[in-house]
Design a protein around this nucleic acid. Structure first.
Length: 541
DNA sequence: GTAGGGCTATGA
DNA sequence: TCATAGCCCTAC
């Protein structure tokens, strides 16, 4: 802590964005002086130098509010020097004010999010100007790389929620995750074009109803990011009369099917015989040879369980032994038992059922990779299930799998929630009242690993924060390391804990992304206590 | 015959 | 459009 000529303490580092964030709430001032978010050194918020204040005012856009603030400052300066000559007013910065909810009298005690955490899973608004911290594929920033404004905009408004698709969270964290997901997960509509529909119908004419994957893979036809499921759904809309004859015994169900078709299908979505003829489809569609589905009765389930107790996993023996299961194949029985009694199934040393989430090429990026990783995940969950004797599927019925879902994709810092609560992008204040912000757990891995590293390495005995190795240039893979490091999950606060902060003065202190940026930029100061200020970030861009 | 894992019908 | 679960394919 240095001293200015007036003898007052000033902070020993340029103000970072987090300093502005941690400015006391004008509604509910902090009882304790704020600390630096990285090394915990206290600094007085009222100790900004006059030069800094002038600098900040120069940076503030000279809109009406900015002019008013400048005028206010000037008048305060003059007034204070005229009146008592004290430097108190001079030392109080007149920074841009935090937004204060109008008419918030009754909500003045509204809980404030720990600002250090609230934006960590979000890139800065101009993230495209900064080097990638992607886990697996860091973006190659060439010196002449130009980022168009539209690209930055896309990064800031993406609907991608991959950073939310995690299944390694605790039960307490799930509500928070689902809340954010429900807020941000809104995939864009991908309407079927006439050409796509024509290709679909031709494909059905060629391969038959139900061969959706074959149609999808056939190079003869082209589809815009469709899955086999999409093809089936589209065909059901276009040709309901060809798709799965409704159950004869239930006229109401038949009505429902027709009703649902009419509900969603526009008149020109329905394809009649004339439409098919125009596409060169003269023959009726080949029906699927697939057996129709039959739900299991309680009697069948009981018989299956009984048979398993007697014959173990000899499904054929069970099928022969239980009359009520005569219509099922041994594999059917295996499938049902796997689903209905996962615990017993795992106890028999069998792998749990794989979870399938078909994705179009672009949504899943690389289908082959998805499947490979999905298989790996299944193996790992199988081992976990066998070891813990806990049915994985029944424990996590609503979670997307980590690998086949977007969760498996690397953490992408260029994907963010549409609002940044502290970097100036307008935020929906009402949402903030009811929905917690979430933090990508990968950052916690990193924090934990870094802390551990600092404790181990005596070279940094002053306890200073050490940035990640510059050579890697990547953030640590989050899901695997976190789920496998029980220590990390034990030492770090759960998401629920973070979002449930009730004491306004409590703020978790985690390493800043700014620090990381400075390290991968090769800043020689990165090992010390210097941090990139706004000025430096702007100048580097 | 069984296991692993993919495909797709069904209904919301 | 999606989640669920019954059905299916293939390797061993």
């Amino acid at each position: 802590m240095a001293s200015n000529p007036q003898g007052k303490d000033v902070q020993a580092y340029p103000p970072t964005s987090l300093d502005f964030i941690n400015r006391p709430n004008p509604v509910e001032p902090l009882a304790a002086p704020p600390k630096h978010p990285l090394h915990g050194a206290s600094h007085l918020h009222s100790a900004y130098t006059h030069d800094l204040r002038r600098l900040l005012l120069d940076r503030v856009p000279r809109d009406a509010a900015g002019e008013a603030a400048a005028k206010r400052l000037r008048s305060e300066d003059e007034g204070s020097s005229r009146s008592n000559g004290t430097s108190q007013a001079r030392d109080l910065p007149s920074l841009p004010r935090l937004p204060v909810r109008s008419g918030s009298g009754s909500k003045a005690s509204r809980r404030r999010l720990p600002p250090t955490l609230s934006g960590l899973h979000q890139p800065p608004p101009d993230a495209g100007l900064l080097p990638s911290i992607s886990v697996q594929h860091p973006r190659q920033q060439t010196p002449d790389a130009q980022v168009s404004p539209s690209e930055v905009k896309v990064a800031g408004t993406s609907n991608d929620t991959s950073y939310l698709e995690r299944n390694d969270c605790s039960e307490a964290e799930k509500p928070a995750l689902s809340a954010v997901k429900s807020r941000s997960k809104k995939p864009a509509k991908n309407k079927w074009s006439e050409q796509e529909t024509a290709d679909l119908l031709k494909g059905v004419a060629k391969f038959g109803i139900g061969s959706w994957s074959k149609i999808l893979k056939c190079e003869e036809f082209s589809f815009n990011r469709r899955t086999a499921l999409d093809l089936k759904d589209r065909f059901r809309v276009c040709c309901p009369e060809h798709y799965r004859k409704p159950k004869a015994q239930s006229q109401s169900q038949h009505d429902n099917i027709e009703g649902s078709v009419n509900k969603y299908a526009k008149p020109n979505d329905r394809k009649g015989a004339s439409d098919l003829a125009r596409l060169g489809i003269e023959q009726p569609f080949q029906k699927s040879t697939r057996r129709s589905r039959h739900g299991y009765t309680k009697e069948q389930d009981d018989a299956l369980y009984r048979g398993f107790l007697e014959h173990g996993k000899s499904w054929a023996a069970i099928q022969k032994d239980e009359k009520v299961l005569a219509e099922r194949t041994p594999t059917d029985l295996r499938d049902r038992f796997r689903l209905k009694y996962p615990k017993e199934y795992a106890a028999a040393g069998l792998a749990p059922r794989p979870e399938v989430f078909p994705q179009p090429p672009d949504r899943g990026s690389q289908a082959a990779d998805t499947r490979d990783s999905s298989a790996n995940r299944d193996k790992s969950t199988s081992e976990a299930t066998a070891n813990t004797d806990v049915p994985v599927r029944s424990e996590q019925p609503h979670l997307q799998p980590a690998d086949s879902s977007p969760a498996s994709r690397p953490y992408d810092p260029h994907v963010s929630l549409p609002n940044d609560v502290f970097l100036g992008i307008p935020a929906d204040d009402e949402d903030m009242d009811t929905e917690p912000l979430t933090l990508d757990r990968g950052i916690l891995d990193w924090a934990f690993e870094t802390t551990k590293l600092n404790n181990q390495e005596s070279s940094n005995s002053r306890g200073e924060y050490a940035p990640p190795p510059r050579a890697s240039g990547t953030m640590p893979a989050s899901s695997s390391s976190f789920s496998n490091t029980g220590n990390a999950s034990a030492l770090l606060p759960s998401l629920a804990t973070i979002t449930a902060v009730s004491d306004d003065s409590e703020q978790l202190e985690l390493p800043s992304l700014m620090q990381y940026f400075s390290s991968i930029e090769g800043d020689s100061r990165s090992g010390g206590n210097s941090f990139l200020s706004f000025e430096e970030l702007l100048s580097q861009s």
